[in-house]
Design a protein around this nucleic acid. Structure first.
Lengths: 325, 325
DNA sequence: AATTATATGTCAACCGGTTGATATAAAATA
DNA sequence: TATTTTATATCAACCGGTTGACATATAATT
């Protein structure tokens, strides 16, 4: 049977209330009493039952994270960073990997609410989950548009798309493609494509976007990319909307006999830690993961404390110079 | 104010107990009553308070994961997989990234215990945390030796080290190095080095292991690897204990003018999803992440249910054939 | 000596569910 | 018709902390 506060009180020879006072550092306490209580806790190896406290306090110090998966350089780094910052701010993290499954995302949302999380940071990409509206809970979204009153943190996707396209043009590419996820998914990431289209038009080039769905598995992606090469044989530059796909494009290009960057120039997007170690040659647009994470956590905590926060916070991106342009 | 069970009872015109019965599907209930209650829950958008239930039931359906970080291809994939399997088994996941910080690991452990998790899966690499012994809790360790009575799941590290070294020898390398983490850390991963040493000796070669600490940052690692190249100029083969480090070795080699695999043959370890996409050219020993994850979750659930489990479960590895040997 | 500040204790209510014991009404059986 | 069985609902205690109200005792200050 687990040690409880009454056991500590008995061993320390004080009342339950006094032990609770020591635990919460409230009210008048003498050094002697504090020591007695601490000794008893030590002796019994007492760990207060957070669940009991949570029930009374209506505060769990838990934050839920709902993201597609941590098995991805960008989301892995983002979640790791969020977790660290939340830990430093005294929160524990309940995690849900929704991986393109609306039902799973909805289930997670319900369970997290049921577990009384103090707040939620959401980066999953599913649609039509109106529970978020009903959830009377502080929520912050990363790179995702949700309800009007849910603050969104995003990298400067438009600037990123613009930089990427300009890099390709300036390095001499003339037939430049773009990849993007499904258009009907309303994410700020689509601004990358908008910027690509704007820049292309400004340079009197015809934009072509090719669909590569985030949820496809590797083999499916490889097939589709191969199709793209077949459909657009003059392509000599491509802005790929994330680095994992960019790696696949590069590999396919090599397999088909293209030299990168001579025959094909590639620019990716994300620039996560892992990618920069495993594939530093890939020129890419680096998302400010640390800043996004910091602002997301700060914003969430502000909301939890009932403070006003901006509804949209856009953070500048950087170019990682590889050897693919 | 949140909706509670009494509100549902009032709206449905039944008692609190009846609502609880409906929620838990216990005792005699008429169809009519069930419908009334469901309608009321729907109408009020009721979510039961899991914390209250947890307090009474002494069961949280929470599992804690303590791992170094999810910002790493191997751990990211492993955690994603564990999370998925635990979710399917009805558990939610509380995550702690301990990143080589014993104090943080200990803090996590205490908080997870305090949060009454039903079990723990640990893959962190810190030493001397005896709280695990005191924790009267089902625990499973992945690739880590802990208490005698805590079951360990690991890939066949010895076989992996043997395969890696033999690959290098068979491809013609004659001066073969090995990297490993600190020796004083008792992890099953050291069996890779033991195998390397055994195979080298068997072939009448002198084994040399070079320390690369998992906790060093990228720049530090790069420096140390560069030092290694300076110290061992005849090196023409190397078995690197993880793929991220192997990528750094490869890059350093290229920078110093080595051709891979002509001048230097490299074999890594881990073979995670992300690595195989971003750097498929790296020949590596592939850990059976999915199997390890499955066995870890099955073992934990068995322990939670009070069943006996094997104390050590070793899972075979595979070779991923790249172009680095 | 009277007043105030400090230290500690007891008690009971509370947080929001769960559940064994118990009551009541309807249906079945004697 | 009386009694037992079955179906359904209610009551109150409980899970393990926290907290406000109130009592008491000692120490410090006026």
């Amino acid at each position: 049977m687990a040690v409880k506060i009454d056991d500590v009180a008995r061993v320390a020879g004080v009342s339950k209330t006094t032990v609770s006072r020591v635990l919460n550092n409230r009210g008048y306490l003498s050094e002697k009493t504090i020591k007695k209580v601490h000794d008893a806790m030590e002796k019994l190896n007492y760990q207060p039952n957070a669940v009991a406290r949570q029930l009374y306090k209506k505060e769990t110090k838990l934050v839920g994270l709902i993201f597609p998966t941590v098995d991805n350089p960008f989301f892995g780094q983002l979640v790791a960073s969020l977790e660290k910052r939340l830990f430093d701010a005294g929160f524990k993290v309940l995690i849900g990997n929704s991986m393109n499954d609306s039902l799973k995302e909805e289930t997670y949302l319900k369970e997290l609410i049921s577990n009384q999380v103090d707040g939620l940071i959401v980066g999953a990409q599913n649609r039509g989950i109106d529970e978020y509206h009903k959830a009377n809970l502080p929520i912050v979204a990363i790179d995702r548009v949700m309800n009007e009153d849910i603050p969104v943190i995003a990298s400067d996707n438009y600037m990123g798309g613009k930089l990427a396209t300009e890099l390709l043009i300036n390095s001499g590419a003339t037939h430049i493609m773009n990849t993007d996820g499904p258009v009907n998914l309303e994410t700020p990431a689509h601004r990358r494509r908008e910027a690509y289209e704007d820049v292309m038009k400004k340079h009197n080039m015809i934009p072509h976007t090719y669909l590569v769905d985030f949820s496809w598995d590797i083999d499916r992606k490889k097939q589709e990319i191969e199709k793209m090469f077949a459909m657009y044989p003059d392509m000599n530059g491509i802005f790929v909307t994330n680095d994992m796909d960019a790696a696949l494009v590069w590999q396919t290009a090599t397999r088909l006999g293209y030299q990168v960057p001579e025959d094909l120039k590639i620019v990716g997007y994300d620039g996560a830690n892992t990618t920069r170690v495993l594939l530093p040659e890939l020129t890419t647009i680096e998302q400010p993961v640390e800043e996004m994470s910091k602002i997301a956590v700060d914003t969430l905590i502000a909301r939890i404390n009932g403070n006003e926060t901006p509804l949209e916070q856009i953070i500048p991106v950087k170019v990682w110079k590889g050897k693919s342009i």
